[in-house]
Write a protein that binds this DNA or RNA. Sequence first.
DNA 1: CTTGTTGCCGAAACCGGTTTCGGAATGGAT
DNA 2: ATCCATTCCGAAACCGGTTTCGGCAACAAG
Lengths: 369, 369
Amino acid sequence: MQPNMENPVRQPTARRVTIADVSEALGLTKSTVSRAMNGYPDIAESTRARVMRMAEKMGYRPLSHAQAIRTGRVRSIGFIIETAEHDAHRPFLAEFLAGISSAASLEGWTLTVAAASSPLNTLQIIEGLCADRKADGFILPRTLRTDDRIATLRRLQVPFVMFGRTGDPTDCAWYDIAGEDAMQSAVQKLAASGHRRIAFVNGGKQYNYTHLRHEGYAAGLQAAGLTFDAALVRENCMSPEDGRQAARALLALDQPPTGFVFAMDRAALGLYDAARDLGLQVGRDISVIAYDGIIEGATMTPPLSTFSVNIRRAGERLGTLLIRRVRGSAPETLRRVEQATFLDRGSAATPARSSEQLANLLRDTAAKP
Amino acid sequence: MQPNMENPVRQPTARRVTIADVSEALGLTKSTVSRAMNGYPDIAESTRARVMRMAEKMGYRPLSHAQAIRTGRVRSIGFIIETAEHDAHRPFLAEFLAGISSAASLEGWTLTVAAASSPLNTLQIIEGLCADRKADGFILPRTLRTDDRIATLRRLQVPFVMFGRTGDPTDCAWYDIAGEDAMQSAVQKLAASGHRRIAFVNGGKQYNYTHLRHEGYAAGLQAAGLTFDAALVRENCMSPEDGRQAARALLALDQPPTGFVFAMDRAALGLYDAARDLGLQVGRDISVIAYDGIIEGATMTPPLSTFSVNIRRAGERLGTLLIRRVRGSAPETLRRVEQATFLDRGSAATPARSSEQLANLLRDTAAKP
DNA sequence: CTTGTTGCCGAAACCGGTTTCGGAATGGAT
DNA sequence: ATCCATTCCGAAACCGGTTTCGGCAACAAG
């Protein structure tokens, strides 16, 4: 008897090829075919080859959810979007998901996406997805300084891979871009062009990478023989508006910076607004190098010089790392840190004026209107 | 004997509550519990209540992939991102996915995301996901004028819901925003403010909504008693740069427009650049009303007046519609069209000059430097 | 008091795979 | 020739659900 439904949509009538079809065609049993395809060592190589060939020929593809009922694995990568989170990562999202998904499909895996409204809700959703076996593991974007997601997943004994390193590496696998190296390199580039006062506009302190980038900035100063000045550092700037205000404040200093390093492109966009308001030209009066490689940067005048992160590639890497992790590789063997690519597009050059001259210029323009 | 694996990650040892546990606790059989929970009519209401209560109490949650092996349904919504596609929709993606996901989880469904590199690849991925039963149905963003995805899904007899209407509505369910009404209203608002020459900068012709919005623009002119002038219409503008060029070209006309209607905010951002280059002030010398409601619009000076689309809500609606569709509701009963919300933020006002005066002004400024 | 109905539930098969267990060949050593 | 260890595969149970089928009560109709 049918349950209480109006008019359920019929599935296509063409019956699937099952493992029984394959075994029958070969004169073997289901168990032999199954073990042959899953790499069990007690199957002769010749038999395995026969099985694989026949499976290929007949177009047999095991149903992952039929396997899952016994194995507990659904061949799916879990990913959670936090919408309440600062919106900075959204422009990357499509590329990032595309990367994960393409790595997943290479191995016959899929990507399961869920949305959370808060960090706490994220934990609840992780628990729910694990309880329902909807994902075999998780990719965690934006590693925090202290990250509850890690504790939760450790407790549930569910594998995960982080986008970004973390302090306590126990059980942790990760992929990351060496933002600290980029920041250091940015400072050195500006210093090599003649900049003596170099500011740093950093992101949110809750993120682990923010601290790394700050270290990179400091290391750059040291390598260039410049002294660290806390007045030249602004924290917690994520949006263009944040960046604009930071730039205004820095340019209002008695000894304003002529060079700017931004931890993120989005904030650096605000520098252009500040420069226009003050009658300064980016790439001449002031120089800037940022980080991320967002598309908007390329359409500025001059285009924003930046350390570009291949976010799609990051997704791919994270996807393959997670699959390996689920399959049993030790987390210590699943850690990758790659370098960002510097795009020299003209927003950083030899300073037209020293910090003092710039300060005088700004005083004059401020007095004029 | 174990297959060839290094060190597979162990699943949590706490065994799940299965249907057998529930049936045993009640002194019933598995089949009774199953039918009780799935709404079969041959189960007494009193029994059903007992079952539901006990299932709740014991925390029983059926495994969707265990159900799927018999039912063929995995309770999952499929969604495909086309990365090669014009990047305009990316800023919305997070909100959109969040909407779908939240609607899905209300019903215990999940969201399966895949990425495609081209329209053809999209079809291949749809076929793959359907063959592997990874999704019970699909949400199709950005309905095209003639859309191969529809044909493929019809052939596979897999349900789908579109974000955007289409010409041939056979089997089609959809959710859409009445962009044509917004465009018409935009024209009428500008006309009511005194604009006589009103331009229209439209999006890509491959999208169905582009044609609808064009009709809306024409209807707006007619309602305002203005005549249609093909010189005032620019097609295929998706990016800020497209919009900038379109605005420049329109303002170079002998009778330039004083009012602009943009089919998308992103293109309208370029108008601000064009205006600055020409020494015009948006909201005074020229007026603009656009469509979408992207965040960048709010940070322009003056902020962009626009018809805002609640993209998260759209995702939610599409999610619930698709679930209903999979459960058997007829597509004709699953069609919703809602209105966009007008945000009056100052970029549209009474024109300071007529089209002729504007043309003279532009000639003067062009001659000066 | 039979004879249908009807309502309600149990027994068992089934879905498409995986995994355990045992045993039939095979080969080498004694 | 015998014995033992391997190699390799079949038989059957199992995973957690769903669905078919049939049968037992209870009740109404004849």
